[in-house]
């Protein structure tokens, strides 16, 4: 089964509710990840502020950070290859990577990218 890995910027937590302001995009994406898991998708998230070693130990992620810096996050790997960077995927994209189709559900349009970095 395809593995989707999401490398988040430094976040307080996956929805960002602990930050000084709640980022709408993060709230939405957290819900999408939960939805994808319910569909049986193998999806993992790594938070730069909590698991920096996961970033350092993955050559692709490490060289991405060296070239583009942490402002270019999030980075999404599908089966180890870069699939998307700089914004979170929507449900249609998640479904596409995982090789299934979204029935009638309207895929949310991708919103503006935000650093998402919140001190907590």
């Amino acid at each position: 089964m395809t593995t989707i890995q999401v490398f988040d910027p430094a976040l307080c937590c996956s929805t960002g509710v602990c930050g000084v302001d709640v980022d709408q995009e993060l709230v939405g994406f957290s819900a999408d990840v939960e939805w994808a898991k319910q569909q049986g998708v193998n999806i993992e998230r790594f938070n730069l502020a909590q698991q920096p070693l996961a970033f350092a130990e993955n050559a692709t992620v490490k060289s991405f950070l060296e070239r583009s810096g942490s402002d270019a996050l999030p980075l999404i790997l599908v089966a180890g290859d870069i699939a998307l960077a700089g914004r979170y995927p929507n449900r249609a994209e998640l479904a596409h990577w995982a090789n299934f189709t979204v029935a009638t559900e309207a895929a949310e349009p991708a919103k503006k990218c935000c650093s998402g970095s919140k001190s907590c």
Partner: peptide, 27 residues
């Protein structure tokens, strides 16, 4: 404890960002 293992491994600006993130009241 979080940052030392990646100091010098990840770019300095990235490490600095992690430290900033971990400098709030909740931490």
């Amino acid at each position: 404890r979080i940052v030392d293992p990646v100091r010098g491994v990840l770019p300095d600006s990235v490490v600095k960002g992690i430290e900033e993130q971990l400098s709030g009241a909740c931490t």
